[in-house]
Write a protein that binds this DNA or RNA. Structure first.
Length: 299
DNA sequence: GGAAGTCAAGTCTCG
DNA sequence: CGAGACTTGACTTCC
């Protein structure tokens, strides 16, 4: 098991998701931001390795406005060397990588324009991972999308659209259960039609399920991951105390985390901690898992 | 330097 | 019908 956190490290003094307003766009500002973001990404990964954090989600803002028509800079070629260096570092230390396009990326939208923009956004994500030379186990995780009042039709539309996607997207795609629209059971059904691996979001499953126990659903989902997809990915977080239902906790609840690890044995997976305090919770999770011989944390 | 106003994109829920 | 939420406040301007 590898443990990771998403996008931002709060203690190293830089962010690899630094962006700007569309109004401020200029090729030189874009180049400046990409250079800074790539430098910070490297710094973040260099922080993670000695702290035994071997899973990381790369921010979608790494190249701001990359899929927007305003962006005419060939960033992939201009920063080829930097992308390759980061990729080499990732492969050297066998760091697991994921990306998670934001809520505007909707493969199953009823609006063809939304779908078209989503394809461009997915191609951008694939470009980033391709530029780093990473294999198909570096995943792009998306939700199934909207329901539009017709669940079955919207699922069918997802499947139909999936088959039209570029292979560079399809090989990296994974679908994640969400907390309102599509529970894990729907993702499993889509997986049967598409071969897509499913990412179990444990917190979402607790909020949105069809009565399955976490342990049972994890074992079903594990079978959707093929060798080329790499080890199963799982997202974990817990409810913010006193917060809105579905709000992510500020810091990891180690008691709950220990229980989750125990109930998921002996499955192996890479675990993304979607917790507000980022690397801080990842560090305490690593410490906890290392201290317990039952969990085969990579060290 | 700090506060206030605003920000590419979609969908759903709540008040 | 508008605001807020979503994996996440951060960029920009004004004072």
């Amino acid at each position: 098991m590898k443990i990771g956190y998403p996008c931002i490290n709060l203690r190293i003094g830089c962010r690899s998701s630094s962006a700007f307003r569309l109004r401020s766009y200029s090729p030189s500002l874009l180049r400046e931001k990409v250079a800074g973001n790539l430098g910070c990404l490297m710094k973040t990964l260099e922080f993670n390795v000695p702290h035994r954090i071997f899973f990381f989600r790369i921010s979608s803002d790494l190249v701001p406005f990359a899929s927007h028509p305003v962006c005419r800079v060939n960033w992939r070629r201009e920063f080829e060397k930097e992308f390759e260096e980061i990729g080499a570092f990732i492969m050297k230390y066998r760091i697991r990588i994921s990306m998670h396009p934001d809520q505007f990326t909707l493969i199953n939208s009823v609006d063809p324009g939304v779908f078209q923009r989503s394809v461009a956004e997915l191609l951008y994500h694939a470009d980033v991972l391709d530029a780093m030379g990473l294999g198909a186990s570096a995943k792009i995780q998306v939700h199934v999308g909207g329901v539009y009042g017709e669940r079955a039709k919207s699922i069918a539309r997802f499947i139909r659209r999936f088959h039209t996607l570029d292979e560079r997207i399809r090989r990296r795609l994974a679908i994640e259960n969400d907390d309102r629209n599509y529970p894990a059971a729907d993702c499993l059904a889509i997986s049967r039609e598409t071969g897509l691996p499913v990412i179990c979001d444990v917190f979402h499953h607790r909020l949105n399920n069809r009565g399955e126990r976490i342990r049972d659903i994890l074992f079903l989902i594990a079978r959707t991951w093929r060798r080329s997809d790499g080890v199963m990915m799982v997202d974990y977080s817990s409810q913010k105390r006193g917060g809105r239902r579905g709000a992510h906790a500020y810091s990891i609840d180690l008691g709950d985390f220990r229980k989750f690890l125990a109930l998921s044995r002996p499955l192996d997976f890479d675990l993304m901690l979607e917790i507000k305090d980022k690397e801080r919770s990842a560090l305490s999770a690593v410490a906890m898992a290392r201290a317990d011989v039952r969990f085969n944390l990579r060290s």
